[in-house]
C-alpha cells in the first residue's frame, strides 16, 4: 500500500511499533475524536503540548495533524489553536434570506471574544420562551465582536442546556452557533429576526465605546427546530455608525 492509499483508508492501517511515529500519533488523535474525548468545537492540545507529552518533534506532530486537517476532522484557527470539527449542515438557514450584517469595510479583520459563558436558571421569561421549567439550566454567552480591533457589536446568546449540553466544551468565539448546532445534530428550521434602533443602556454604550449622538441597532433572533421549539434566542447591539445590514428579496416560491 502506498502512502496515498493510507491517507484515503486510514481505518485499515494496522498500527505496530514499526509504523512511523507521525502515523501513530495521527491514529491516537483520531481515536480520541472518535471516542469523544475531543469533542467537536473543542481545541485539542497544542502542537507543543502534544510534542512534549509524547516526547516527539513538533514537525512530526504537525505532519500527524496535517492529514486530519485535510480530511476535514480538524481545523487550524490562526492564533487560537487546532479545533475538532463535526457534521455540517447541507443547507444553511441563512441562505434562505435574513439580515446579514455587513462587517468590515475592506481589509479590517473581524474577531470575536467570548466574554461570558455561564449556566444560569432559565427564570420565568426564558422558561416560557424555551418551554422548560424556571429552574432548568440555560447557557448564557456574551460575545464582543471587534472589527479592526475596535468594538463593533455585542451579542447575548441564550440556549437551553438540554438542547446542546456539549456547549460547555465548545469555543463559541471560533464557531458560530449554527456550526455548533450542526456538530451536535441540532437542526435549525426557522428563524425570526428583528431590527430596532435604540439609544441603548449606558453599560452597553460603554462596552461598545459609542460616541454621543450615535444610536444602536438592536437585533433579536429566535431560532426554532423542526417541532417549532425555540432552541436559541439572541439579542445583539450594533454600533449604528459602524454597521449596516443586507437582505436579499425574492418573490420566487
Amino acid at each position: 500500500m502506498d502512502a496515498k492509499n493510507k491517507q484515503v483508508k486510514p481505518a485499515n492501517t494496522v498500527i505496530t511499533y514499526r509504523t512511523p511515529i507521525y502515523l501513530q500519533l495521527r491514529e491516537i488523535v483520531r481515536n480520541r475524536i472518535e471516542e469523544g474525548e475531543y469533542l467537536p468545537g473543542m481545541a485539542i492540545p497544542s502542537e507543543n503540548e502534544l510534542a512534549e507529552t509524547f516526547g516527539i518533534n513538533r514537525i512530526t506532530v504537525r505532519n500527524a495533524l496535517d492529514a486530519l486537517v485535510n480530511e476535514g476532522m480538524l481545523q487550524r484557527v490562526q492564533g487560537k489553536g487546532v479545533f475538532v470539527l463535526g457534521n455540517k449542515y447541507e443547507e444553511v438557514l441563512e441562505e434562505h434570506g435574513g439580515f446579514v450584517p455587513n462587517l468590515a469595510s475592506g481589509k479590517a479583520t473581524v474577531s470575536t471574544k467570548e466574554q461570558v459563558k455561564s449556566l444560569r436558571p432559565a427564570g420565568d421569561k426564558f422558561a416560557n420562551l424555551f418551554d422548560i421549567a424556571p429552574e432548568d439550566p440555560i447557557y448564557f454567552i456574551r460575545h464582543l465582536n471587534l472589527v479592526g480591533g475596535e468594538a463593533a457589536s455585542m451579542e447575548e446568546i441564550y440556549v437551553p442546556q438540554d438542547i446542546c449540553p456539549q456547549l460547555d466544551a465548545v469555543n463559541t468565539s471560533v464557531f458560530p452557533m449554527r456550526d455548533v448546532f450542526a456538530f451536535y445534530d441540532v437542526e435549525m428550521c426557522s428563524m425570526r429576526q428583528s431590527l430596532e434602533i435604540i439609544q441603548g443602556l449606558s453599560k452597553t454604550r460603554k462596552m461598545l465605546d459609542v460616541p454621543d449622538g450615535v444610536a444602536l441597532i438592536m437585533m433579536e433572533c429566535t431560532f426554532r427546530d423542526k417541532t417549532g421549539r425555540v432552541i436559541e434566542f439572541s439579542r445583539s447591539f450594533f454600533r449604528g455608525d459602524r454597521s449596516s445590514f443586507r437582505i436579499t428579496l425574492s418573490d420566487r416560491p
Binding site: S244, R246, I247, S250
Partner: peptide, 13 residues
C-alpha cells in the same frame, strides 16, 4: 414582474 432584489439597512439622523 418584479422577482428579486436586495436591500441595505443602516441608521441615519
Amino acid at each position: 414582474n418584479q422577482e428579486s432584489g436586495e436591500e441595505n439597512i443602516s441608521v441615519t439622523y
